[in-house]
């Protein structure tokens, strides 16, 4: 907080002149980038549609009410599929994520090279959205629940493994040292010193991811990978708006219930 000598005596400023200039420059660059980005986007926009949007929105809104309650009879199966995609996908992800996490944690990795590979698996799995995984898998194994389950599994490996290996790195090392001092082998040290310490983290991460996966599996159907998203896609394409609102309502309720369950289970574990 410098004082600057002026003709009227010292003046206080919040920042030194140079730093202030840098901050202004930062703002200028930021605004320039944003303006440029905006121009590019607006070039590709048909403004007629945008102007028409409020009227359209109101139109669709009125057509969505009331939801078609009887449609629920056809939704039970997709909801069940969605639940299975999320649950089985989480189970697959955890089974694969556990060895990956042990390979990625600094204190348990067998070799730095193995660690690098494990970290790459984590980043790739996390960078590619489950919908993209779904797109790929529908091409390979065909549309349906199987593609969705594998997509959710592949997407979740990175997420779970990342949280797990961070948990492994944060354990209390003296407990492991004590086991090592008894003459235990490396595998036994892992079993007695490390696993008990990270078990609650594992359970917490699994439930947390399951909750997220319920959300993600509701949309997988948009690319044909099973679940309630299939019905959503179909209803939107056929402009059956009362069915759309019913599906959205069902998604909302499913998400709320899964959130509640996951909060309860996590509370019980920790």
């Amino acid at each position: 907080m410098p004082l600057i000598e002026t003709s009227d005596g010292p003046m206080w400023r919040r920042r030194a002149t140079k730093k202030q200039l840098l901050i202004w420059l930062g703002w200028l660059v930021g605004i320039a980038i944003a303006t440029y980005a905006w121009q590019l986007i607006s070039e590709k926009t048909i403004w007629f549609f945008v102007e028409d949007a409020p009227r359209q929105a109101a139109d669709i809104g009125t057509r969505m009410i009331p939801p078609k309650w009887s449609y629920m009879n056809e939704l039970w199966r997709p909801v069940w599929d969605t639940l299975n995609i999320a649950t089985l996908g989480t189970v697959i992800a955890l089974i694969i994520a556990i060895p990956v996490a042990f390979a990625a944690a600094k204190n348990t990795t067998p070799h730095p090279l193995v660690r690098a590979v494990a970290l790459f698996i984590i980043v790739s799995s996390r960078s590619v959205n489950s919908l993209v995984w779904g797109l790929i898998l529908v091409l390979i194994v065909g549309p349906g629940v199987l593609a969705g389950t594998i997509a959710i599994g592949l997407r979740s490996i990175g997420f779970c493994a990342k949280l797990l290996y961070e948990g492994i790195e944060e354990i209390d090392h003296t407990q492991v040292e004590a086991i090592e001092a008894t003459g235990a082998s490396r595998a036994q040290q892992m079993l007695y010193g490390i696993v008990p310490q990270v078990l609650p983290t594992f359970a917490g991460v699994g439930v947390f991811r399951w909750d997220i996966n319920i959300r993600e599996s509701t949309i997988l159907g948009l690319v044909g990978a099973g679940g309630i998203g299939l019905e959503l896609n179909g209803s939107i394409n056929t402009l059956a708006w009362t069915q759309v609102s019913m599906i959205l309502l069902v998604i909302l309720v499913t998400v709320i219930i899964s959130e509640w369950v996951s909060a309860r289970v996590r509370g019980a574990i920790i």
């Binding site: 209390d172 003296t174 407990q175 004590a178 008894t182 008990p196 310490q197």
Partner: peptide, 12 residues
């Protein structure tokens, strides 16, 4: 070996 902060595996 006996440790300073006991170093028991707390969750066992």
């Amino acid at each position: 070996m006996i440790f300073q902060e006991y170093a028991l595996v707390e969750r066992l």
